[in-house]
Structures are given as structure tokens and as C-alpha cells.
Design a protein around this nucleic acid. Structure first.
Lengths: 328, 328
DNA sequence: GTGAAAGCGCTAACAC
DNA sequence: GTGTTAGCGCTTTCAC
């Protein structure tokens, strides 16, 4: 039922290897034969079996993409862009959801290893040690985390955080709170450092409240602490936390942006659709997806010669409705 | 560098076929040998190569999942559930984003065909003809659309639509608008039929406005038409359209739920986080993802004996803040 | 219960 | 430019 190279060979009166070449190295075949083989293949509906050729070439033309939670609106634009870009380069992608579980992450990588030429790890939860060990067998590109020896795509949150702090200070906010992310989050640490420096530079006071779950609930739970802390400006770990804290504040009778100004991070669809529309730090997720695939394919083509590249993507603040002048 | 069955065989002093059996048919191997092979395999870090075994068994242990737009918040919960469920059954999933393009859809199916044991088509844009033709080569399960001869998972939108209409009527709305979806959308047709019947039953008037793009913009653009139509209750094609129309109405100086009541569909994260929180029809997307994988795996196991199953999942209305009593 | 051998669909030297 | 041959990692008869 499935058409193989052999039947195409027979039907077009050439040897299998010639058919193979017409597809994998067309320039080695005379224009005439190539034409004939191609038409016959077309008529028969022949499609090369990538898995079979992977067996000999070692190239599967597949990529893996590991994310911690597909349902988190941060990821879909990244996945979509990575996938579309991979397809342009004739690659397909396995998407795996690790559910924030390091062990699941490792298992999935192991399971996928033989079926992909490389994998993109987005904000992995695995230890550096584990990643380095696994990377002996398989090219990795890491997004939003730094692992020695591996190609990396970083969204430079520091940039956006500086703008956010400057923005809040310019609106008259002198006491700020940072709602940090989950313990162990690389991005959260980056934010904290950047926010600390920026606050110092602007002579503002910075309080860190957390850790918080990276969800609406996380923000909801932090609302009381924010209200009681004496700050007027808030920088949340991400849009979801921002939305949650706004809602929580609201339930406590405090309003955004009237009483508190809140800045999110990610520029997710949820933040754009929220009321008030979120002032937020834009993460260039589609670009990150494309860049990651690009670097990965480079690493795949180079084979072992491992030049770890580093791509840094700019982030920036977009001002919408959740920030305004500090209350008198 | 990569450990094969052969090295395990050598190291444990048995033939390759015995090693093969220990993994694929353990009961055919004596407990003793099995134990030895297993430990040796463990020490060597051997992992079976699925792609290679697929060549002989015809089972790849991979599934395809085609969606029209990963970035649409309707899909991620479905993808997540499908993926998690597949993994429990030792399957991995290729996620493909067709970008609403029937041709891309067909190409992706063709390209994936050899690498998967079957594919889940969520709300495909392909013609029935094309799907039927493709299904000759590969098991399909279709979600939210009916294709003759194929296993199907339907979310019974009619149920939810009835509740929505009843809810609006009970609030005093007598003139309702249905904001339809894209031309050719199966779900949109279902909604229209169900809404028509429900409206008739309740003696309400129903207007259909559309087609609309299934996005916030789609809703935004429909706002003026809604305002001018004389209706007070609106049932939108999905949450995004609902959010868009609310925003558009707001820009025109009309408020929700004060002047208009709006009901969405899907119960996406965007709707839950929106202000006002959306009254919406809950689509059981995680269940749909699991069920689809379940039916697909059944079809795969049965081989050709194609018993097209039909799973119908209930939908229901969840009442939140975007609906209230009709204006006097 | 285990070994021998053929073959899945394809590619890659190597001849000619 | 094309055919021959061997083999990728694994499974599966068929013997023994």
C-alpha cells in the first residue's frame, strides 16, 4: 500500500539508487532521468520515508521543543513561530509539555533523543549538570537561561525592567514592589538584579515579595501583602501575576491604576485583553522561537564543532492602562 | 557513540534477537536471561530506537495533532491534554499549526504521514473529500467536525447555546444577535442552527451578523453593526470575538453588561481574565484532547477494521459578569 | 528458550 | 551518470 523507492525505480526503469539520488542529490542525476523519475514518482504518489533515511544519514529532520506549560499564554506564540520557521527549513517539531517537572523533562528528552536532530529547551527546570550531561548526546539550544557550552537565546529582561522602573518613577512612585517568580527561576533572578540596580539609580525603594506561583492565583495571593507593604508601584513576574494582583487588590477595595500602578511581563494575549489593559514588558517570543530554531539547525549542521552562540533579544516597555500617576 | 542492540547482545553474551525480545516480547525470554540483559542494557545506557523498529513493525509510536492556530487560546488546553495522555500510552506527538490554510494542512499531513501512526485533526479546514482521500492511508480522528467514516469527537455546542439563549431571554432580552464565525466553519453552522431553534422556542428574535474573523478584531469590527441592529443580547462565535465586541461597544459609548449582554464560547483563559469576566459556553477542550487520542489509538490498534466511533461531549453555560438584565 | 538469517526503506561508497 | 553492494537498528519467521 505504501509506495517505496523500489517501485518507483522499477516503474521508471532505473536502479533504486538513482531514484534515491533524484531526491537527495538531484545534481548527480541527468536532467532527463531526473525528469522521468520525478513524473513517475508523482503518478505513483511516492513520498520519501524520512524515518528510513534517518537510519542511514543520521538526520531525522525532526526537532524537539520542550516547554514547561503549553497552556501558559507565554509559550504559544513561541511555539507557533518555532514551528513555522522549522517547517520552512523542512523540519517538523515534537512539542513536549513537561508540566514544570524536571524528571518528566529528562524522560522526554531521552525518549525523543533518537527521533530528533536536536532540541530547544525553553526555560528548562533541569539542573545545569543534567543539561550538560544530556547535551553530550544531542544538540540543545536553551532559551531564557544560560548553560555553559550551549547555544542560548536570551530575552534581555534587564532592558525592559529598567524602562519599567524609570516609567514608574517618572509617574511619582518612590516605593516599588517586585513580585518575584517561582523559586529557582532564572528570569526572576535577572529581574531582581535589574530592578535593584534601576531602583538604586533612580533613588527609589525596592521591596521583593515572593516567591509567587507564575499564575493568576500567585498574583491574587500576593495582593494583601502588596496593599500592606506601603508601595504604590508594582512590577509583577509576568502578566498572569499582574492580572491576579490587580484582581486581588480590587477585591480589597484598592484600584489600579488609581491607587496602585502595576506592570506585567510577557505581553501575552491575556494582558492585552485585560481591563485595565496591562502596561507590560514585551518579550519577543516569536523572534525567540525563530532564533532558537536557527541556532539549533546551525548546531546540527556543524556536527560536533560546538560553537556556543549567544543571541540576545531586546525587551521593551509598552505603556497601556495599568499605570498612572502615584496617588498624592 | 549511540548504544545499539548489538552491543548489549555482545556484552550480555546472547544473540541480538534475544535482546530484541527482552524489550518487545519479554515473556518469550527466560527470567534469568531477561534480568541479565536488562542490567547490562541499563549499565550501557541502551535505549531502543523507535524509528528503526518502526521500519519493521510499522508502528512509530508517534501521533500528529493538527490545529489551525496554536496561538488561539482555545487550543493549548486541548494540546496539553492530548499530549499528556499520549505520553501515558507511550506515544509522542507532533504538533502542527496550519495557520488556517487548507493547503498547508494537506502538506503537513502528507509530510507527517510516514512518521506517525495516526493524526488528530482539530476543526480541519480541508474539504471532506480531501480528508476522506487522505484517510485511506492513515487513521484520523476529527474533532469538532463530522466526516463520514471517521471517528469523531464533538463538543455539543447546541446544548450550551440553548442554555445561553434561555439565560439571555430570562434576563429580558428579546432581540438577540449571533456573531457568526468564519465562512465554512462547522461549529458556526451548528451554533446558528441551535440558536435559531432556541430563539424560536423562547419567542425571541434572532439576527445573524457575520461572517466574522475568529479574533478580537473580528469582534471589534462587528461592534457598530451590533449597536445599530437593535438587539440587546449577543452570542459571539468565541471568547475572542466576545472580548472584541465588548471593547468595540465600549469605544462607541455602549457598555457591557449595562447596555448589552454578551456571551462568549470556549471558556478560554482570556475570557476568564477579562473585565467584565465573560459569561461563556464552556468547551471541554482537555476532555476532547484525551478522547481524540483515545479513539485514535483504538483505530490504530484495530488496523483496517475501521469502526468509526462518535464521542459527544457536553458543553454548558457558565454565568459570569458580561450578562445582566436587559435595559428597560 | 535461543540463535540464524532475511528484510523493513533508504543512502553511500565504490565500480564501471 | 548509473548500477552494485553493504549496511543503518531493529523485528520476525524459522530452525534447533
Amino acid at each position: 500500500m505504501t509506495v517505496t523507492i523500489r517501485e518507483v525505480a522499477q516503474a521508471s526503469g532505473v536502479h533504486v539508487s538513482t531514484v534515491s539520488r533524484t531526491f537527495s542529490a538531484p545534481h548527480l542525476v541527468s536532467a532527463e532521468t531526473r525528469g522521468r523519475v520525478l513524473t513517475v514518482a508523482g503518478e505513483l504518489g511516492y513520498r520519501p520515508n524520512r524515518a528510513a533515511s534517518a537510519l542511514t544519514t543520521g538526520r531525522t529532520h525532526n526537532l524537539g521543543l520542550m516547554v514547561s506549560d503549553i497552556a501558559n499564554p507565554f509559550f504559544p506564540p513561541l511555539i507557533k513561530a518555532a514551528q513555522a520557521y522549522a517547517r520552512e527549513r523542512e523540519y517538523h517539531v515534537f512539542v513536549a509539555d513537561t508540566d514544570e517537572d524536571p524528571q518528566a523533562e529528562e524522560e522526554l528528552i531521552q525518549a525523543l533523543a533518537k527521533q530528533v536532530d536536536g532540541v530547544v529547551l525553553v526555560a528548562p527546570r533541569l539542573t545545569n549538570r543534567a543539561i550538560e550531561r544530556l547535551s553530550l548526546d544531542l544538540p540543545f539550544v536553551v532559551v531564557n537561561r544560560k548553560v555553559r557550552g550551549l547555544s542560548t537565546v536570551l530575552m534581555d529582561i534587564a532592558q525592559g525592567v529598567c524602562e519599567a522602573v524609570a516609567h514608574l518613577v517618572s509617574l511619582g512612585h518612590r516605593r516599588l514592589a517586585l513580585l518575584s517568580g517561582p523559586r529557582g527561576s532564572w528570569t526572576s533572578r535577572q529581574m531582581r538584579t535589574a530592578a535593584g540596580e534601576a531602583a538604586a539609580r533612580h533613588g527609589a525603594e525596592l521591596l521583593t515579595l515572593g516567591p509567587n506561583a507564575p499564575t493568576e492565583d500567585g498574583g491574587l495571593h500576593a495582593a494583601a501583602a502588596v496593599r500592606d507593604s506601603g508601595v504604590t508601584g508594582v512590577l509583577a513576574y509576568n502578566d498572569l501575576v499582574a492580572i491576579g494582583v490587580i484582581e486581588g487588590l480590587d477585591a480589597l477595595g484598592a484600584h489600579v491604576p488609581g491607587d496602585f500602578s502595576v506592570v506585567g511581563v510577557d505581553d501575552t494575549i491575556a494582558g492585552r485583553l485585560n481591563r485595565p489593559k496591562l502596561t507590560t514588558i514585551v518579550m519577543p517570543t516569536p523572534a525567540a522561537g525563530r532564533t532558537a530554531v536557527d541556532l539549533l539547525l546551525q548546531a546540527v549542521d556543524e556536527g560536533g564543532s560546538r560553537t556556543a552562540a549567544l543571541a540576545t533579544l531586546e525587551t521593551s516597555l509598552v505603556i497601556r492602562e495599568s499605570t498612572s500617576a502615584a496617588p498624592a
